[in-house]
Design a binder for these strands. Structure first.
Lengths: 236, 236
DNA sequence: CGGACACTTCGGCGACGGCCGAAGGGTCCG
DNA sequence: CGGACCCTTCGGCCGTCGCCGAAGTGTCCG
């Protein structure tokens, strides 16, 4: 008899948190980086409030979610970018084939705003995210061929654009996140988050609806054309 | 009632494959990239052969493992580098704190060969993997500060060393893999695999025991010192 | 203060999954 | 050909987990 690898125990325990469809539904929903109330998630997942309460208890205890109680509401959100990355990675592993397939009219029109531009936890995704990532690459600010990293010119570009990059933490400056509508990597990590935050703060994009869909404004088209050479058509 | 996100179903199904301690034990063992027989895994995990047979059935059906039948043996291995990366990522997520802590004498001496150098699926890991990755970085062949990518000089270095890089597949050329003894990223991806293969073929390293531990040879010390400026002391 | 609301706890139910040993089939070897 | 070996299938057991509704706690608001 071999002694059990403690890593196996921990690995199984972590996976078990995701291995339930209701909890997986919650984790995917929480990728929008908003804080959801328990009731919202229960309605979203289609289960009773009591059921969802237990799920949240597990997810919080397992460190995947953090909670804030405000009055009679319990708000939860993904614990950190690391957890978001984990969920994204798992989702990308699992979804690699079903994308880019045209569905029926209602779904495709409902999904088109999301496909055009959205946030993926804290960075830009969808065609918008791809367009920005490609533009950075075309201009020599980002390399994708030999890995995934900002170049020196890329660092200078962020500096010149007034987008600060916090390089102290352990989080990687640039990281590839696989887009599940476009099936291609887009910029995540510190730089992806900073760019997304700047785009929203500077009015380049605005959120539409209560979803994580975002729309590029006229000012945003100008800014991205000027700073990155992104053709406005690539954003539509 | 909301219609269930099909991604949630697939996500939960994938996670469920890892969410069992016996299966997790198998997946971690298979990270050595060897093909194990069902019986070996059963003994390793400490369960009956019949039990393990069912686990293998699930893992194969789920696409995490591939099998080859030879005579009365059933050999299984991880399906591809993508699955290996998934397991590594999950394991890294779960183990980030317990490393670098000195344990009792028997464990630390038994583990020291593994900590010194080993393979992690198809690339070098342990202190050896870190030393090589750091040396590449110090010489400007690899950037880690702004992401993780080979530089042009790095591509030339591989070329000059006669280590071919297959750039056709979708697999990234360079990718960071978090080391669970060193808690630092080391080189994985196509370049990491090519380097590891070359090191073994050229006799820079030899496998020791039946484990995934590797030892640097005298010739390997010379080669790494000449080509990368790795001080031999860093490998011990 | 009372009622509406959000969430949690509890009991109970049903399903699923992991485990084993026994039995069976395929393969190798003497 | 016979026996050893490796694996798989099957039946049965048991524990865990997801689910619900009912009841309880705490909060907000009129």
């Amino acid at each position: 008899m071999t002694t059990r690898d403690p890593r196996a125990t921990a690995l199984a325990r972590l996976a078990a948190l995701v291995a339930d469809e209701t909890r997986a539904t919650c984790l995917l929903a929480l990728l929008d980086r908003r804080a959801w109330t328990a009731g919202e998630l229960a309605r979203h997942a289609g289960v009773a409030a009591s059921t969802l309460s237990e799920h949240l208890g597990r997810l919080v205890a397992g460190g995947l979610l953090t909670e804030e109680r405000q009055g009679r509401h319990r708000y939860v959100r993904l614990a950190d970018a690391r957890v978001a990355q984990l969920v994204e990675d798992l989702a990308a592993q699992v979804a690699p084939d079903r994308a880019a397939r045209p569905r029926n009219l209602r779904e495709s029109s409902a999904g088109s705003a999301l496909a055009r531009g959205r946030t993926c936890y804290d960075h830009l995704a969808g065609r918008l995210g791809i367009a920005v990532t490609d533009a950075l690459t075309d201009r020599g600010l980002l390399v994708q061929e030999t890995g995934f990293a900002l170049t020196d010119a890329g660092l200078a570009w962020f500096e010149a654009a007034g987008i600060g990059l916090d390089r102290r933490g352990r989080r990687p400056l640039a990281r590839a996140c696989l887009d599940w509508t476009e099936r291609r990597p887009h910029l995540a990590g510190v730089a992806g988050a900073a760019l997304c935050r700047h785009a929203l703060e500077a009015g380049w994009c605005v959120r539409i609806g209560s979803e994580r869909a975002v729309k590029v404004t006229a000012a945003g088209e100008r800014a991205m054309s000027d700073l990155l050479g992104v053709a406005p058509a690539a954003l539509r």
